[in-house]
Design a protein around this nucleic acid. Structure first.
Length: 290
DNA sequence: TCTGCATGAAAAA
DNA sequence: TTTTCCTGCAGAG
């Protein structure tokens, strides 16, 4: 479920709700007891997203950070401020962060982290190592698109694989991949080196626009309304998608081709996104379900 | 009620 | 390359 927009949304929401307060930290599930004990009572100074990773800065931990990655199943559950405090943990709550009872009534917020792929404390060196293996994130102000363009153009791997490689560009998942390539008229199997610079620059700009809309709308929206605006959709997660869940191409009506790339679903309209012709197709591409 | 799948990637082997 | 994280939902029975 979570692509980059979800984590940036969480970083904003959590920083606003919990930032600036000394927090209670606990691991009801029991798998992060030691880490929670180190965080307990410390003031949260900031929450930062890079791609699908979250880094939390607590006072007095120097360069160390709490690192969270939701993976495929992980989720955050927010508990609104409430007189009697948050409900008892439900399920496998790895980490609960909670403003103390003497915080402002409107700040008695609690947060449960369930089923994450990663929830751990990283020392400064490990944080640096994590950052160094993440590509530029279109949602970050410090992102340098030229790095992404250079990396894609230096690779013979399919652009559909490169877009989901978090060391090339951080934050794009299976849905944004298919939607971005469709909007760009690029077939997912096109080798990176065969995509023009201008096309990649436009792809980056489109990714930044769609991801920003995803943060704002709390859901992936890739279809403009008649006024050219991106507005929240009616899907399960508020998404409004052009082709990821479609049967036929919304532009030309042709049937869609489905693949598995990097172990995740991909879809393309091979009329609007002509497949590469010359040379062998590079990389894994199996029919969906095979 | 049960089974399998899903909008990931770190860690282990 | 395989395992692990563990929820919620759709579809089957």
């Amino acid at each position: 479920m979570p692509e980059g927009h979800v984590l940036h949304r969480e970083a904003l929401d959590q920083a606003r709700a919990l930032g600036g307060h000394p927090l209670r930290a606990a691991s009801p599930q029991g798998r992060f007891v030691e880490g929670a004990a180190r965080l307990d009572g410390r003031r949260l100074e900031g929450v930062e997203a890079h791609g699908k990773h979250l880094l939390y800065r607590f006072e007095g931990l120097d360069g160390a950070r709490l690192h969270v990655h939701l993976g495929l199943y992980g989720e955050f559950r927010h508990h609104a401020p409430c007189e009697e405090g948050p409900p008892p943990p439900r399920g496998a709550v790895r980490l609960r962060l909670e403003a103390p009872a003497d915080a402002r009534p409107d700040a008695r917020f609690a947060l449960d982290l369930v089923g994450p792929n990663a929830c751990r404390l990283l020392d400064a060196a490990s944080v640096a190592s994590l950052r160094s293996r993440l590509g530029p994130d279109p949602l970050r102000a410090d992102a340098e698109p030229e790095i992404v363009i250079r990396r894609i153009r230096a690779s013979r791997a399919p652009v559909g694989l490169l877009l989901m490689d978090q060391s090339v560009v951080a934050g794009i998942g299976a849905i944004y991949r298919s939607e971005l390539l469709f909007r760009a008229g690029l077939h997912p199997l096109t080798p990176g080196r065969e995509v023009g610079e201008d096309a990649l620059r436009a792809l980056w700009d489109d990714a930044a626009r769609l991801l920003r809309a995803g943060v704002r709308l709390r859901g992936i929206v890739t279809v403009e309304d008649r006024a050219g605006r991106l507005r929240r959709g009616t899907g399960r997660y508020g998404e409004r998608l052009a082709i990821y869940d479609a049967v036929r191409c919304p532009r030309c009506g042709a049937g869609l081709r489905r693949f598995t790339m990097a172990g995740r679903r991909a879809v393309a309209c091979e009329t609007c996104q002509p497949p590469p012709t010359d040379g062998a197709m590079v990389g894994e591409a199996a029919p969906a379900g095979a």
